[in-house]
C-alpha cells in the first residue's frame, strides 16, 4: 500500500504561488515520498525543538533553474495515518538561515533555553542583544514566534 501524503493548507497555498517550472520540480520531489513508507528517513533532520513527540521535521531539496526549494515534512503520527505530512516550502536561502539558526541553538545554551522556552510557550519574547560591532544589527526577539503552549513538543 502506498503511503498517504497530506499537505497543510499554507504549504498548498505556497505551492500554488510557485511558477510552473518550480512547482513541477517541487512536486517531482514530493512524489519521491510515495515510494517511502514508515520511518524511512530520506531528508535532512532539522535539529530544532518543537516537532511533535516521536517524530522529527525533515527537509528535502527540489531545484530548478538555479533556484532551490526545500520541502519541510514529517512522518504522519500514529493517530494521523501512515505516510507523510508536507508542512511548508522554503526558498533555499531561508532554509540555509534556518540551518544556521539550528547550529546557533545547538551551540549556545542561552539561545537554546530561550528557543525551548518559546516553543514551550513559557515566554513570549526573548531579548538576545549583540554587543556593538559584533553583528550587523543587534536584534531582539530573535527566536521563532510560536502560537503558545499548544505547540506540540
Amino acid at each position: 500500500m502506498m503511503p498517504e501524503i497530506r499537505i497543510t493548507r499554507s504549504a498548498a497555498e505556497q505551492l500554488d504561488k510557485l511558477d510552473y517550472a518550480d512547482a513541477v520540480e517541487v512536486q517531482a520531489a514530493i512524489e519521491v515520498l510515495r515510494s517511502r513508507k514508515g520511518e524511512a528517513v530520506i531528508g535532512e533532520t532539522i535539529r530544532l525543538p518543537g516537532a511533535p513527540a516521536g517524530t522529527t521535521y525533515l527537509a528535502m531539496y527540489g531545484a530548478s533553474k538555479g533556484r532551490i526549494w526545500v520541502i519541510i515534512f514529517r512522518p504522519l503520527l500514529p493517530g494521523e495515518g501512515d505516510g507523510w505530512l508536507i508542512l511548508s516550502l522554503l526558498p533555499g536561502d531561508e532554509y540555509r538561515d534556518m540551518r544556521r539558526a539550528a547550529e546557533v541553538v545547538a551551540s549556545s545554551p542561552p539561545v537554546r533555553d530561550a528557543v525551548s522556552a518559546l516553543v514551550a510557550g513559557t515566554a513570549s519574547t526573548a531579548n538576545v542583544t549583540a554587543p556593538p560591532g559584533s553583528a550587523d544589527t543587534p536584534t531582539s526577539g530573535g527566536a521563532a514566534p510560536t502560537t503558545g503552549s499548544d505547540v506540540p513538543r
Binding site: A101, V111, T139, G142
Partner: peptide, 14 residues
C-alpha cells in the same frame, strides 16, 4: 555567538 539577522530569519522560518 550572537543572534544575527540571518539567524533571526531562520528562526522566523522555523
Amino acid at each position: 555567538i550572537f543572534i544575527t539577522p540571518e539567524v533571526e530569519t531562520g528562526l522566523q522560518a522555523y
